[in-house]
Design a protein around this nucleic acid. Sequence first.
DNA 1: ACGCAGATTTTCT
DNA 2: GAAAATCTGCGTT
Length: 193
Amino acid sequence: MTGAAVAARFYARPTEEVARGLLGHILVSDVGGRRRQTAGRIVEVEAYTGPHDPACHAYGHRRTARTEPLYGPPGTAYVYFTYGMHWCLNAVTEPRDYPAAVLIRALEPIAGFATMRARRRKEPLCSGPARLCEALGVTGALNGMSLQRGVLRIVEGSKPKRGEILTGPRIGITEAADWPLRFYLKDSSWVSR
DNA sequence: ACGCAGATTTTCT
DNA sequence: GAAAATCTGCGTT
Protein backbone atom coordinates (compact mmCIF):
# COMPACT_ATOMS: atom_id res chain seq x y z
CA MET A 1 0.00 0.00 0.00
CA THR A 2 1.58 3.23 -1.12
CA GLY A 3 -1.22 5.76 -0.73
CA ALA A 4 -0.65 9.00 1.18
CA ALA A 5 -1.50 8.83 4.88
CA VAL A 6 -4.58 10.76 5.96
CA ALA A 7 -3.27 13.95 7.64
CA ALA A 8 -3.79 14.90 11.28
CA ARG A 9 -5.93 17.90 10.32
CA PHE A 10 -8.46 15.49 8.75
CA TYR A 11 -9.15 14.09 12.22
CA ALA A 12 -9.24 17.48 13.96
CA ARG A 13 -12.88 18.10 13.05
CA PRO A 14 -16.32 17.22 14.43
CA THR A 15 -16.34 13.47 15.01
CA GLU A 16 -19.43 12.84 12.92
CA GLU A 17 -17.77 14.45 9.88
CA VAL A 18 -14.61 12.44 10.41
CA ALA A 19 -16.65 9.24 10.66
CA ARG A 20 -18.33 9.88 7.30
CA GLY A 21 -15.04 10.98 5.81
CA LEU A 22 -13.25 7.79 6.82
CA LEU A 23 -15.54 5.64 4.70
CA GLY A 24 -13.64 4.66 1.57
CA HIS A 25 -10.19 5.17 3.09
CA ILE A 26 -7.80 2.25 3.61
CA LEU A 27 -6.56 0.78 6.88
CA VAL A 28 -3.09 -0.75 6.46
CA SER A 29 -1.33 -2.98 8.99
CA ASP A 30 2.33 -3.99 8.94
CA VAL A 31 2.00 -5.94 12.18
CA GLY A 32 4.26 -8.98 11.90
CA GLY A 33 6.40 -7.34 9.21
CA ARG A 34 5.82 -5.78 5.82
CA ARG A 35 5.83 -9.25 4.31
CA ARG A 36 2.60 -9.95 6.18
CA GLN A 37 0.93 -6.66 5.32
CA THR A 38 -2.85 -6.68 5.55
CA ALA A 39 -5.24 -3.96 4.42
CA GLY A 40 -8.92 -3.21 3.93
CA ARG A 41 -11.24 -0.46 2.75
CA ILE A 42 -13.27 1.10 5.56
CA VAL A 43 -16.98 0.41 4.94
CA GLU A 44 -18.56 0.84 8.40
CA VAL A 45 -17.82 3.17 11.34
CA GLU A 46 -19.41 4.62 14.47
CA ALA A 47 -18.87 8.05 16.05
CA TYR A 48 -18.35 8.44 19.80
CA THR A 49 -18.65 12.15 20.12
CA GLY A 50 -17.17 13.13 23.48
CA PRO A 51 -17.93 13.95 27.15
CA HIS A 52 -21.63 14.60 26.42
CA ASP A 53 -22.13 11.22 24.68
CA PRO A 54 -23.31 8.59 27.22
CA ALA A 55 -21.89 5.78 25.08
CA CYS A 56 -18.42 7.31 24.84
CA HIS A 57 -15.78 5.89 27.18
CA ALA A 58 -14.91 9.47 28.15
CA TYR A 59 -18.52 10.34 29.07
CA GLY A 60 -18.52 13.05 31.73
CA HIS A 61 -14.80 13.61 31.15
CA ARG A 62 -13.82 10.30 32.70
CA ARG A 63 -10.07 10.66 32.25
CA THR A 64 -8.44 7.41 33.37
CA ALA A 65 -5.48 5.33 32.24
CA ARG A 66 -7.80 3.56 29.83
CA THR A 67 -9.28 6.66 28.19
CA GLU A 68 -6.04 8.66 28.09
CA PRO A 69 -5.44 8.14 24.33
CA LEU A 70 -8.81 9.79 23.62
CA TYR A 71 -7.30 13.03 24.96
CA GLY A 72 -4.28 12.69 22.69
CA PRO A 73 -3.69 14.34 19.31
CA PRO A 74 -6.12 13.73 16.43
CA GLY A 75 -5.11 10.76 14.33
CA THR A 76 -4.07 8.61 17.30
CA ALA A 77 -5.10 4.94 17.61
CA TYR A 78 -7.32 4.16 20.61
CA VAL A 79 -7.35 0.37 21.06
CA TYR A 80 -9.41 -0.99 23.95
CA PHE A 81 -10.06 -4.48 25.26
CA THR A 82 -13.57 -5.71 26.00
CA TYR A 83 -15.67 -8.76 26.89
CA GLY A 84 -12.59 -10.46 28.23
CA MET A 85 -11.18 -11.31 24.81
CA HIS A 86 -11.67 -8.74 22.09
CA TRP A 87 -9.72 -5.71 20.86
CA CYS A 88 -11.43 -2.82 19.08
CA LEU A 89 -9.81 0.00 17.10
CA ASN A 90 -10.73 3.69 17.07
CA ALA A 91 -9.27 6.76 15.39
CA VAL A 92 -9.06 9.69 17.82
CA THR A 93 -10.77 12.85 16.55
CA GLU A 94 -11.16 16.56 17.37
CA PRO A 95 -8.42 18.78 18.82
CA ARG A 96 -6.11 17.48 21.53
CA ASP A 97 -7.80 17.24 24.97
CA TYR A 98 -11.25 16.75 23.44
CA PRO A 99 -11.96 13.03 24.05
CA ALA A 100 -13.78 11.60 21.02
CA ALA A 101 -13.13 8.91 18.43
CA VAL A 102 -14.45 6.87 15.52
CA LEU A 103 -14.81 3.11 15.96
CA ILE A 104 -13.82 1.14 12.87
CA ARG A 105 -16.50 -1.56 12.53
CA ALA A 106 -15.90 -3.25 9.18
CA LEU A 107 -13.47 -3.43 6.27
CA GLU A 108 -13.59 -4.80 2.78
CA PRO A 109 -10.42 -6.94 2.71
CA ILE A 110 -8.08 -5.87 -0.11
CA ALA A 111 -4.62 -7.25 0.72
CA GLY A 112 -2.99 -9.96 2.82
CA PHE A 113 -5.78 -12.51 2.57
CA ALA A 114 -3.54 -15.43 3.52
CA THR A 115 -2.32 -13.66 6.66
CA MET A 116 -5.85 -12.67 7.63
CA ARG A 117 -7.09 -16.22 7.24
CA ALA A 118 -4.17 -17.58 9.23
CA ARG A 119 -4.97 -15.17 12.09
CA ARG A 120 -8.73 -15.57 12.03
CA ARG A 121 -9.25 -19.16 10.90
CA LYS A 122 -12.83 -18.14 10.22
CA GLU A 123 -15.02 -16.14 7.90
CA PRO A 124 -15.93 -13.36 7.68
CA LEU A 125 -12.48 -11.82 7.95
CA CYS A 126 -13.16 -8.14 8.68
CA SER A 127 -16.91 -7.60 9.26
CA GLY A 128 -17.07 -6.55 12.91
CA PRO A 129 -14.82 -4.42 15.11
CA ALA A 130 -13.16 -7.34 16.92
CA ARG A 131 -12.89 -9.44 13.77
CA LEU A 132 -10.98 -6.84 11.80
CA CYS A 133 -8.59 -6.32 14.69
CA GLU A 134 -7.84 -10.01 14.77
CA ALA A 135 -7.40 -10.17 10.99
CA LEU A 136 -5.01 -7.18 10.99
CA GLY A 137 -3.13 -8.21 14.12
CA VAL A 138 -4.29 -5.14 16.05
CA THR A 139 -3.82 -5.40 19.85
CA GLY A 140 -3.24 -3.11 22.81
CA ALA A 141 0.40 -2.86 21.76
CA LEU A 142 -0.76 -0.27 19.20
CA ASN A 143 -2.79 1.79 21.67
CA GLY A 144 -1.81 5.46 21.58
CA MET A 145 0.24 5.21 18.40
CA SER A 146 -0.09 7.55 15.41
CA LEU A 147 -2.17 6.44 12.45
CA GLN A 148 -0.13 8.63 10.10
CA ARG A 149 3.05 6.61 10.20
CA GLY A 150 4.16 3.38 11.81
CA VAL A 151 2.86 -0.16 11.63
CA LEU A 152 -0.79 0.86 11.53
CA ARG A 153 -1.99 3.67 9.31
CA ILE A 154 -4.94 5.01 7.37
CA VAL A 155 -4.24 6.06 3.77
CA GLU A 156 -6.25 7.81 1.09
CA GLY A 157 -8.75 5.56 -0.64
CA SER A 158 -11.71 6.30 -2.86
CA LYS A 159 -14.38 8.75 -1.77
CA PRO A 160 -17.89 7.29 -1.71
CA LYS A 161 -20.45 9.15 -3.82
CA ARG A 162 -23.08 11.28 -2.10
CA GLY A 163 -26.04 9.03 -1.34
CA GLU A 164 -23.81 6.00 -1.02
CA ILE A 165 -23.47 6.58 2.72
CA LEU A 166 -26.25 5.27 4.98
CA THR A 167 -26.87 6.21 8.62
CA GLY A 168 -28.24 4.12 11.47
CA PRO A 169 -28.25 3.52 15.24
CA ARG A 170 -25.09 2.37 16.96
CA ILE A 171 -24.65 -1.30 17.78
CA GLY A 172 -23.83 -3.23 20.94
CA ILE A 173 -24.44 -0.47 23.49
CA THR A 174 -27.33 0.39 25.75
CA GLU A 175 -26.86 4.11 26.46
CA ALA A 176 -27.79 6.37 23.57
CA ALA A 177 -27.61 3.47 21.14
CA ASP A 178 -30.31 5.15 19.08
CA TRP A 179 -28.23 8.21 18.27
CA PRO A 180 -27.77 7.98 14.48
CA LEU A 181 -23.98 7.83 14.56
CA ARG A 182 -23.29 4.63 12.65
CA PHE A 183 -22.30 5.14 9.04
CA TYR A 184 -21.82 2.51 6.37
CA LEU A 185 -21.62 2.07 2.60
CA LYS A 186 -24.90 1.31 0.91
CA ASP A 187 -24.06 -1.59 -1.33
CA SER A 188 -21.17 -3.10 0.55
CA SER A 189 -21.58 -6.78 1.36
CA TRP A 190 -18.83 -6.34 3.99
CA VAL A 191 -20.72 -4.39 6.67
CA SER A 192 -21.38 -6.30 9.92
CA ARG A 193 -24.80 -7.95 10.51
C1' DA B 1 -32.68 -19.11 10.41
C1' DC B 2 -32.78 -17.80 15.13
C1' DG B 3 -31.66 -17.53 20.11
C1' DC B 4 -28.96 -18.13 24.05
C1' DA B 5 -24.94 -18.77 26.94
C1' DG B 6 -19.96 -18.89 27.56
C1' DA B 7 -15.48 -16.94 27.28
C1' DT B 8 -12.48 -13.80 30.25
C1' DT B 9 -10.29 -9.23 31.89
C1' DT B 10 -10.34 -4.42 32.52
C1' DT B 11 -12.60 -0.73 34.61
C1' DC B 12 -15.44 1.48 37.59
C1' DT B 13 -19.03 1.15 41.59
C1' DG C 1 -19.05 -7.52 42.14
C1' DA C 2 -21.08 -6.16 37.76
C1' DA C 3 -20.97 -4.60 33.23
C1' DA C 4 -18.72 -4.06 29.05
C1' DA C 5 -18.61 -0.07 21.78
C1' DT C 6 -18.21 -8.79 20.92
C1' DC C 7 -17.97 -13.17 18.73
C1' DT C 8 -18.63 -18.08 18.59
C1' DG C 9 -20.69 -22.58 19.13
C1' DC C 10 -24.41 -25.22 20.03
C1' DG C 11 -29.19 -25.78 20.72
C1' DT C 12 -33.88 -25.59 18.70
C1' DT C 13 -37.26 -24.30 14.93
